[in-house]
Amino acid sequence: MSDDIAYPVFRTPDVVLALGAARRLMEFGRCEYSEVSVCAMLGSVAEVRRVAKALPAALFRGHEEAWEFEGMSWEEHPALVLGVRGPDLPSDPSAYEGRLPVECELRDLPVGSIEDAFTAAIGSNSGEINWEHLAWPDAPEAGFHGESKHAEVTLLLNTGTRDLDDRTDEHTVLVHVRSSSFGGRQMREPYAHWLAEQVGLAVIGPGQRW
């Protein structure tokens, strides 16, 4: 079993530039089975309803406290906690009490099918676009074999962390590689540098673990 580590390679307040940089990196590793997923955290009922109109196929799932429904059957859970599509969101504002932020997500879609619409819809909410099932090539001059298990690109929107809980006015592109640590040092960090350099980017900060 192995884990990944994601290095920031580009940061800007311009979402168009951020999306372009992320796509450039993603295309370097894209293959026939690559997919994209998106996720956003929505902090108000008004934002939930606005985004639902823009992304009606998205799944919306409300916040729940740990052990809140322990011992209860699935039928007893509120629909918003289990997850509903945009058209099925509750119309009663009281249904959102204690359920914010609401997570909005679309998963495992074809590359190019959702990125523009999601970027246009997210507004000031924090979220991410994640391209996975990529295939990083060999880098013989750097001494690294290619990989696919941990080959991903993430665009963080209005946040600086993969937890989506650090609200910022900037967007950050992350390149993922396999985590391989020895003596506290990430042995595959140079591979992340190499990958970024192939598309005109550069590692600009420490790696993030999920």
Rank of each mutant, 00 (worst) to 15 (best):
R209K: 12
P101L: 11
P93L: 05
G127R: 06
S181Y: 09
F10G: 03
P87K: 04
E68H: 01
L106C: 02
M187F: 03
L106D: 04
P101E: 09
F10H: 14
V102P: 08
R24D: 13
A54D: 11
L109K: 12
D165T: 12
D169C: 02
V153L: 03
W136S: 14
Q186E: 15
S179R: 15
V199W: 03
G207V: 04
S126W: 00
L55D: 01
E128Y: 01
P137T: 12
A66Q: 11
D3W: 10
S37F: 06
A192Q: 04
D116K: 12
W210E: 11
G200N: 02
D108A: 13
V175G: 02
F144T: 10
Q208I: 15
D163G: 13
L82E: 06
L25Q: 07
M1K: 04
V9I: 15
D3V: 07
P90H: 04
R61C: 12
S2Y: 03
E105N: 13
V203S: 02
P13L: 01
E47N: 07
D165W: 01
A117R: 15
G83S: 07
L80D: 07
S37Q: 05
L174A: 08
L59M: 14
R61P: 02
P93D: 08
S179P: 00
H145T: 15
M1Y: 04
V102C: 11
T12P: 06
A57I: 00
N125P: 02
W67P: 00
H176Y: 13
V45P: 05
S126Y: 00
L59Y: 02
R185V: 15
E76P: 01
M187N: 10
E152P: 00
D4Q: 13
T161S: 13
E132T: 14
L201M: 01
I122C: 11
H150G: 01
V175T: 05
A6K: 15
A117G: 01
P56I: 07
A202Y: 03
A202E: 14
S73E: 14
N130F: 02
E64F: 09
A192D: 07
S179F: 04
F144K: 10
G207F: 06
E76R: 13
D108V: 11
W194K: 00
V102Y: 07
S37H: 04
R61Q: 15
Q198L: 13
A57P: 00
S148E: 10
D116L: 06
A21C: 08
V173G: 05
P101I: 15
P190D: 08
L134P: 08
F60V: 07
P206R: 09
G20M: 08
Y191F: 13
F69N: 05
D163C: 01
A54P: 05
E68W: 03
A192W: 13
G29I: 12
D138K: 08
A57K: 14
V15G: 00
F28N: 09
C104F: 03
L89S: 02
A192M: 09
A54I: 12
L174H: 03
L42M: 09
R30P: 01
S113E: 08
D3F: 11
H150A: 09
P137S: 15
A40R: 02
T12Q: 06
G200C: 02
M26N: 01
A139F: 13
H171S: 08
P137H: 10
F69I: 12
A66M: 10
G143I: 11
R185M: 11
L134V: 11
